Simulated scan of single mutants.
Amino acid sequence: MSTLLEVSGVSVTFDGFRAINNLSFRIGPAEMRAIIGPNGAGKTTFMDIVTGKTKPDQGRIIWGEKSISLRGMSEARIAREGVGRKFQKPTVFEDQTVHENLLMALRNKRGPFAVLFYKPTAKDLARVEALAEEIGLHDALWRKSGELSHGQKQWLEIGMLLAQEPRLLLVDEPAAGMTPAEREHTTNILVEAAKTRAVVVVEHDMEFVRRLNCKVTVLHEGAVLAEGSLDHVTTNQNVIDVYLGR
């Protein structure tokens, strides 16, 4: 299997605390992966490193078919390379409609003049319709985003990320605060997205992880403790001791 992202031998220390410890991780171009582990295991720091928010002390972060290094690249440049990230709390433009939010997020020219004189093309409008369909908000296209439920705002934000056509989507605890029906719909959105890109989901909710039906990476003290199917890792004694037994 070809590799989209390869992290090897990465370490990060904050004030003497080693948050990431010789971590290695790889994911293919159309793959779903769940990352689990106790608080302080390095899950958020891992995402910070891949997106350029945190610079590693050592190690390699290799991206794409041309094997370019993401180390030292700015966050904006890494985003342009195709790495999209969704934080736990949804950030949408609440005074704008769902349609406007999705339109603003489309991957178009970003210069000041381009933005000033931007007129959506028929292709842009069709893309917005398709995205709204994909995230289940087609009936809410003309509603203000501030009126949406928590779950719907999460879907809109995923849609806004998908509008930028990332090759890798990093999603932080998408199931938090959702109703069971919303969780199920979120699963469907992410599983569908992983057919055409890499999707990494950091999650504590084991039931949600089970529904994703994917390979699981368990982090502990900044390193990979176990990797494999959910059944495989949840029967691993080390994983039970440090995480599941709590």
Rank of each mutant, 00 (worst) to 15 (best):
G59R: 08
K86R: 12
K66H: 11
Y118Q: 13
P120K: 05
D95Q: 13
I49T: 14
R85E: 08
G82Q: 05
I49D: 01
G64K: 07
Y118A: 13
N101S: 09
I78W: 03
G52R: 03
G82D: 08
D95H: 10
D95R: 10
R77F: 00
G59A: 08
T91P: 00
E75Y: 00
L106M: 09
I49L: 15
F113P: 03
V50A: 08
G82I: 04
N101R: 03
G52F: 01
K86T: 13
V50W: 02
T121F: 04
R71Q: 10
K53S: 11
K53E: 12
D48V: 07
V98E: 09
R107Y: 13
D48F: 07
T97R: 01
N101K: 06
H99W: 14
K86Q: 08
G52N: 04
D57S: 13
G111R: 11
K66G: 12
T121G: 03
V50G: 04
F46V: 07
S67E: 12
T97W: 01
V92A: 03
I49E: 04
R110V: 15
E65N: 12
D95K: 09
T51S: 15
L116Q: 05
I68E: 13
P56K: 07
R77W: 00
V50R: 04
L70R: 00
E81D: 03
Q96C: 12
I61A: 02
Y118S: 14
L103Y: 03
F46P: 02
I68T: 09
R110L: 12
A114V: 11
E65I: 05
P112L: 15
S69V: 01
G52M: 06
P90L: 01
G82R: 04
P120M: 14
E94K: 09
L102W: 02
Q58N: 13
G82T: 04
P90V: 06
K53M: 14
G72M: 04
A105P: 06
V98S: 05
E100S: 10
F46A: 04
G72Y: 01
G64E: 07
F46C: 08
E94S: 10
T54W: 00
R60S: 15
A79S: 14
T51H: 06
H99S: 12
K55N: 06
M104S: 11
I61R: 04
Q58G: 12
T51I: 08
G52K: 05
G52S: 03
G111W: 09
M47A: 14
Y118D: 13
R77P: 00
V50I: 15
K109F: 11
Q88F: 03
V115Q: 13
G84D: 10
D95A: 10
N108P: 00
K66V: 08
S74G: 13
L103K: 02
K55V: 13
F113K: 14
V83K: 01
V98A: 09
R77C: 01
R110A: 15
Q96P: 00
F87C: 08
G84C: 10
P120N: 11
K119W: 14
E81W: 05
L103P: 06
R77H: 08
V115N: 04
Q96V: 08
Q88M: 05
Q96G: 01
A114Y: 06
K89Q: 11
V115T: 15
R107S: 12
Y118K: 15
A114I: 12
R107D: 14
P90C: 03
D48R: 13
N108W: 01
V98K: 07
K89P: 00
M73W: 00
K66E: 15
A76F: 10
A105G: 05
L102E: 05
L103V: 12
L102Y: 02
K119A: 15
